[in-house]
Design a protein around this nucleic acid. Structure first.
Lengths: 261, 261
DNA sequence: CGTCTCTGTTCGACGATGCTGAACGCTTGA
DNA sequence: TCAAGCGTTCAGCATCGTCGAACAGAGACG
C-alpha cells in the first residue's frame, strides 16, 4: 500500500465527514501527521481539483472535481443502470419511493432514488448513507454476505439512531437470519422516527450480493398488514429481476442463505 | 507536488472520463506509467474505496466512496447552500428550471438544479458538466474572471457541440465583452439543439467570481423577446442577491468588467 | 496600538519508501 | 495445443516524500 496515496485518501475522507472545512493543523492532528506533510498532500490534491482552498481563511475543503467523479461513478455503475427501469416500474406499481443501495464500509449508500409518483416535492437522496444496522437495505445485504464479512459488520461498534434501533450483535444476528430465510428485510423506524423500509438483496453473475433494492416511506403506510404483503411480493420480484439481468443464477433459494465457498 | 498522489488523482480522473472501466495495462499506457506502478496505486485506492475492482474481469472502476465524497462536497458548498432558497424562488417566479454552476477546468458543473415547477418528469443534472464556451454559465463566469485566467480559457482548444457553437477565440472574446457590459450571458442552442440558457455571475466577499446562476430550457420559450427581458431582470436580480449574501460589495457595475489587480 | 499566539507556509537533509524491469500464473482466443 | 495478453508478485536501487525547525502573516487580546 502506498503511504502517501493512502494519506491523501484519508484526508479526503476526513474532509468529507463532519466539518466541511479543515485547516492544515487540524488535519495533521486528526491524522497524526506533521504539518508540512499534510500541506504537501493538500497542495497536490488541490492541483487536481479534488480539494480547494478558501483563499480568505486558508482552510481547505473538498473540490468540485469530487462531485464530477461521483457523477461518473453513477454513470458507470452497472447495478444502477441495470436497475433503473425495473425500479421505475416498481415505484409506479406500488406507488412508493424506491431506493437502490450498495454497501460502503458499515453503511448503505443510495445509488438510485426513484420518487414516489404521487408526491410532488421530495428530496433526492442519491449519495446519502445510512448505517447498515438501522435499515432494511443493510440487513438485506448483510444476510447474503460471505460469513467473514458479515461477522466483521457485526463486530464493529454501532450506535442507536432512534429508540427502535437494534444495536446488539445477537439481536441483529437473529434479524439477519430471518431475512435470510424470507428473502426480505423490514425496518420500522430504526433510522428515522416515522420512516420504514422494505428491501431485498440483488446478486450478480457470481451470486454475490452487490446491493439491495426496496421501498422507503412512512412506516404506518408501508408496514400495514395488507400493504406489507403486497410490497414484499413486488420488491422481491423486482430485486430478483435485477439479479437475473446481472446474470445471477441462484435466485434467493427458499432457505435464504447462499453457500459461500 | 507529490508524485504518487498526483498519479493517483490522474488515475481517478481517467476512470471518471470516458470508459467507466479500465485495465492496469490500459491505464499504464494512457498515463505513461509502468504496469506495477499503476497496480500499486490502484490497490491503495481500492483499499480506500475510491476505486473498485471487478473480481471477474480484473478491471477497475470508480468506487462508491467517490459518490459519498461528491455528496459531502454538495453539503459543504457555500455557494450551493447560500443560493438554494433564492434559486427556488426564481424557479417559481419565472416558471423555469434554474441552475447554479461553478467552473472546473474548462467546463461548468451544475451544483444545484431547481426543477421547473410545471414539468412533472425532469432529470436531475447535478454533477453534470458543459464546456464553458458552449453555455451561458461559462460565458458569465469567464467575463468576470481575472484577465490571466480568462486568457487561459481562451487559449485552450475547443470543439463545437452543435452547429451554433462558437469556438473561435475572437468570437468568444467579443461575446464575453458583451456579457461584461450587460451582466448577463445568453446561449442559444450552442450546447444542445433546442436548448437555451440565460445566466449571470455570482461573486463572493472579495468580489471574485465563484459561479453563475441562471435558467435553462427550450430556446424558443426562453429567448422570445418578452420572456428574455423578463428573465434577464429576474436572473440578474437573483444572482445579485446571492452575491450580496456571500458578502460581495461591488455588484455588477454598469461597465461590467471588474478591475483585478 | 503593540504584542502574542495562532495560522499556513517554506526550507533542507535524512532515510524510508515508492518506482521499475523482469518473471510469474492465469485466462482467452486462435 | 499453443501463444499472446492480462493482472500480479518480487527485490533492489535511487528517488522522492517526510519531518523538525524557522518564516511571514492574520487575528485576538490587553
Amino acid at each position: 500500500m502506498i503511504q502517501s496515496v493512502d494519506r491523501a485518501a484519508r484526508i479526503l475522507h476526513e474532509l468529507g465527514s463532519g466539518s466541511p472545512t479543515l485547516g492544515v493543523t487540524e488535519l495533521g492532528g486528526r491524522l497524526d501527521l506533521a504539518k508540512p506533510t499534510v500541506h504537501g498532500l493538500l497542495r497536490t490534491l488541490e492541483q487536481s481539483g479534488l480539494v480547494s482552498q478558501d483563499v480568505a481563511t486558508g482552510r481547505y475543503s473538498l473540490g468540485p472535481r469530487v462531485l464530477q467523479l461521483g457523477n461518473a461513478y453513477l454513470a458507470g455503475s452497472e447495478l444502477r443502470s441495470r436497475s433503473m427501469l425495473r425500479a421505475g416500474a416498481l415505484a409506479r406499481q406500488v406507488n412508493e419511493a424506491v431506493w437502490v443501495t450498495v454497501l460502503v464500509d458499515d453503511a448503505v449508500m443510495v445509488v438510485h432514488h426513484e420518487f414516489r409518483p404521487d408526491d410532488a416535492v421530495q428530496i433526492l437522496e442519491v449519495g446519502a448513507t445510512v448505517p447498515w444496522h438501522a435499515c432494511a437495505f443493510g440487513h438485506a445485504i448483510a444476510a447474503y454476505l460471505p460469513q467473514r464479512e458479515m461477522e466483521a459488520l457485526l463486530e464493529a461498534p454501532r450506535r442507536a439512531l432512534t429508540g427502535r434501533t437494534r444495536t446488539e450483535p445477537e439481536t441483529l444476528r437473529k434479524a439477519i437470519a430471518t431475512v435470510a430465510s424470507r428473502g426480505v428485510a423490514v425496518e420500522n423506524q430504526e433510522a428515522n422516527v416515522g420512516d420504514g423500509g422494505l428491501a431485498a438483496p440483488v446478486l450478480d453473475h457470481a451470486n454475490r450480493v452487490v446491493g439491495a433494492l426496496g421501498v422507503v416511506g412512512p412506516a404506518e403506510r408501508l408496514l400495514a398488514r395488507q400493504a406489507r404483503a403486497r410490497l414484499t411480493r413486488a420488491v422481491t420480484e423486482t430485486a430478483r429481476g435485477v439479479s437475473r439481468d446481472l446474470g445471477a443464477s441462484r435466485l434467493l433459494p427458499a432457505d435464504g442463505r447462499l453457500s459461500h465457498r
